[in-house]
């Protein structure tokens, strides 16, 4: 997890920088994530035991950043137990696995979830890493054990944020999305084609797609020009 640019999380992790000291842009960035999780939770049919999946059409659209930030913001702002299931592995991603996590739990029924949860400086926020990618991750992710794990997470945590693989890169995402209570689709503005976004939405037709988070959506214009034209809240 890159926590360098997570104002709410960093603010809570260490008290070196208070909210007042944040720059204007970062303060507004934090407000953006607060608005995002507020809108997402408002679209859920319950306020506890929520499992929210975060995905994107392609790689590199900011899905992990968004998932990490809304999990940290919710843990900091709300009195709820929050779990971040980070970067669920998929066949093309072999980088995960530095620490044991979901893969080990799914592969070994004898292992306890408690020993895999990683605590954070926020007492109500835990992280479950993806773990070492197996040879056939689809077998694990589509199995009954995965379904029971989701049920268990729903019972143990008020809110679980699952960082899913990209929809167009891993077919497992469609299966996992069906197990979630809601799916937030992150689309990188200026990088993703309309065609890819439309195809991702069609592939998630069986899931509860609650909405879209437009990432990197600020104007490309310089501040002076955007301020002169008007209509850009990020330069106001």
């Amino acid at each position: 997890m890159n926590r360098m640019f997570l104002p709410s999380v960093r603010e809570t992790y260490s008290d070196h920088q208070s909210l007042v000291e944040l720059s204007e842009s970062r303060r507004r960035l934090l407000e953006e994530f607060r608005g995002l999780y507020t809108a997402v939770l408002a679209r859920m049919d319950r306020d506890r035991g929520i499992v929210l999946g975060v995905s994107s059409p392609m790689h590199g659209e900011g899905k992990t950043t968004v998932a990490t930030n809304i999990a940290g913001a919710m843990a900091a702002d709300l009195e709820k137990r929050v779990l971040l299931v980070s970067s669920v592995f998929h066949p093309a991603d072999r980088r995960t696995g530095e620490r044991p996590g979901l893969a080990e739990y799914l592969a070994d029924p004898a292992r306890s979830l408690e020993e895999l949860l990683v605590p954070t400086p926020l007492p109500n926020l835990h992280v479950l890493f993806a773990g070492a990618a197996p040879d056939n991750p689809s077998r694990l992710l589509r199995g009954e054990r995965m379904r029971r794990t989701v049920t268990e997470l729903r019972e143990r945590f008020d809110i679980t944020v699952v960082d899913l693989p990209p929809v167009l890169r891993a077919s497992d995402t469609q299966v996992l999305a069906g197990m979630m209570d809601g799916i937030l689709l992150v689309v990188g503005v200026g990088a993703t084609s309309i065609w890819a976004a439309e195809r991702a939405v069609k592939m998630l037709a069986g899931a509860n797609l609650v909405g879209i988070a437009a990432n990197r959506a600020q104007s490309e214009l310089p501040q002076w020009l955007a301020r002169w034209i008007g209509g850009n809240e990020w330069v106001a």
Partner: peptide
């Protein structure tokens, strides 16, 4: 054909854009 704005996303996908997150 790349997505250029949140409004274009809403128009094309018919889904609400819940947030527009700027580049960090």
């Amino acid at each position: 054909r790349r997505v250029r704005s949140a409004e274009e996303l809403e128009r094309s996908l018919g889904l609400p854009v819940l947030a527009s997150i700027p580049l960090l």
